[in-house]
Simulated scan of single mutants.
Amino acid sequence: MTRPDRVPAHNLAPTALAGAIAMAVAMGFGRFSYTPILPGMMTELSLTPADAGLIASANFVGYLGGAVAAGYGWAAGRERMVSLSALVATTVLLLAMGLTSSLLLFSLIRFLAGVASAFTMIFTSAIVLSRGLAAGNPHVQSVHFGGVGIGIAVSSLMVFLLPAQGFGGLANWQAAWFGGALVACIGTIIVAALLPSGPASGKAAEREKPLVWSRPLVVVTLTYGLFGFGYVITATFLVAMARQGASDHTVEFLAWLITGLSAAISVHLWRRAVPRLGIVGVYLLGLLVEAIGLILVVALPSPYAPLIGGLMLGATFIMVTAYGLQIGRALAPQSPRKALAFMTAAFGVGQIIGPLVAGWLAQGSGSFTVPTLLASGVLLFCAALIGLEMRRIVAATGA
Rank of each mutant, 00 (worst) to 15 (best):
A126D: 06
V115A: 03
A56W: 07
S125K: 06
S83I: 00
F106R: 07
A58T: 08
A134S: 15
F106G: 01
S57T: 12
L99E: 13
A135K: 10
I122S: 00
L129V: 09
L87P: 10
I109S: 11
V88D: 05
A135Q: 02
R131M: 01
G77C: 08
A67K: 00
L54H: 13
A76I: 11
S142I: 09
P138F: 00
G66V: 03
N59E: 07
A69C: 09
L45V: 07
G77F: 10
L95Y: 14
G66Y: 00
L95G: 15
F111M: 05
Y63G: 05
T48M: 04
L108R: 03
A134H: 10
G73F: 10
V88Q: 06
L47V: 10
G66W: 00
S102P: 11
V140S: 09
T120Q: 00
L104W: 14
L94N: 02
E44M: 14
F111I: 04
V61P: 05
G73Q: 07
F106C: 01
L54P: 11
G132T: 10
H139L: 15
F60G: 03
A86L: 11
F106M: 02
L112V: 07
F123Y: 13
V115L: 13
A56S: 14
A89Y: 00
S117E: 04
Y63R: 02
L87R: 05
A70G: 13
A56P: 10
S46H: 14
S130R: 06
A118G: 00
W74N: 12
D51M: 11
L108S: 09
A50V: 14
I55Y: 10
T48E: 02
F60T: 03
I122P: 03
Y72I: 12
L103E: 13
S83N: 13
T124G: 13
A126Y: 05
L47E: 08
N137Q: 15
G136W: 08
G77P: 06
S46W: 04
R110H: 13
L45N: 05
G71E: 07
A135W: 01
T100E: 01
V88W: 07
V143P: 09
L133E: 15
L93P: 13
G98F: 00
V140L: 08
A89E: 06
V115P: 08
V143H: 02
I55V: 15
F111Y: 02
A135R: 02
G66P: 04
S142D: 12
G114W: 01
I109Q: 08
L108G: 01
L93Y: 10
I109D: 10
A56N: 12
E79N: 08
G71C: 09
N137H: 12
E79T: 08
V140K: 07
G62L: 01
A134V: 06
L108A: 11
T120V: 08
G136M: 10
G62I: 04
V143F: 08
G98Y: 05
V115K: 08
H139I: 15
I55A: 01
M81D: 14
H139M: 15
V115I: 15
S101L: 09
V61T: 11
A113G: 14
R80G: 00
G62M: 01
Q141Y: 06
A76P: 10
A96N: 04
A58G: 08
S83G: 14
T120W: 02
P138T: 05
R78T: 10
V88F: 12
G73I: 00
L93T: 09
V88G: 05
